[in-house]
Design a protein around this nucleic acid. Structure first.
Lengths: 123, 123
DNA sequence: TGGAACCTTGACATAGATGTGAAGGCAAGG
DNA sequence: CCTTGCCTTCACATCTATGTCAAGGTTCCA
């Protein structure tokens, strides 16, 4: 699919899709005329990228993580270095911490909302 | 406690602590001489702020959320507007989404690490 | 009395990361 | 042809910081 269609289906601007490619997050094939040619799996990639960026992960980390998410894991044993594994381990720990923090805050908001709604507006 | 001590205990620079105050995230009392006077609960506030910022929430949202987290909920019924409740509801939904995305990715990384370690380095 | 270490406000510059706008040109298709 | 979509590229905007300077007040200890 071309960039316009991917943009429409993901609700991510064409500008941003090109930016992600420039950052090394997406690598669509090219048609003979130079147009980007995205595969179906790039839809998931875009969702992942958006989700992780919104969750505070920087591009360079997402670049490391993305390949672990959609490929059969076998495909790239060649590039698995101890450094990469250590980095992934560290990122996983940070993600744990974020999940904890977000979950706590979310639950506190839930409790707050329940309390606020369970009684009529004071004042 | 004064700003230097808070900085030492949270590992957040005094510069940044003043910045957070300027942004409306912290409101320490003042001593007679004008020095900031932080309470113990501000330690938690600083951790929360760091955690939420690192999780991708912008300052203006954290400003809304913080009061829900550490106060007895009773204290501020006066300022509870329908707009605020709606905004909190929306933020909670976004946080849910982030928790979901982070959890999924984290688990995928865990699986990837296990797979990568369970067999000797190919290549 | 005099430093030394801490604090104050204010300002200005800088930086990296993420994202957007707009110009100018090529390609596709009615 | 002419519109629409895609191409590249440069420039700009925003947010979250961080460094640094100025010019000064406060605390405490020697």
């Amino acid at each position: 699919m071309k960039i316009g269609e991917l943009s429409a289906r993901t609700n991510v601007s064409t500008r941003l899709l090109r930016y992600y490619e420039e950052q090394g997050l997406l690598s669509p094939a090219r048609l003979a005329n130079g147009y980007r040619d995205y595969a179906e799996c790039h839809l998931d990639d875009v969702w992942q990228i958006r989700g992780l960026l919104d969750s505070g992960l920087p591009v360079r980390i997402i670049k490391q993580i993305l390949p672990c998410l959609d490929e059969p894991c076998e495909l790239q044993a060649a590039e698995v270095t101890p450094d990469l594994l250590a980095s992934l381990e560290q990122q996983r720990a940070l993600m744990d911490e974020r999940v904890r923090c977000l979950t706590e805050s979310r639950d506190a908001i839930t409790a707050y909302l329940r309390a606020a709604r369970s009684r009529p507006q004071a004042s």
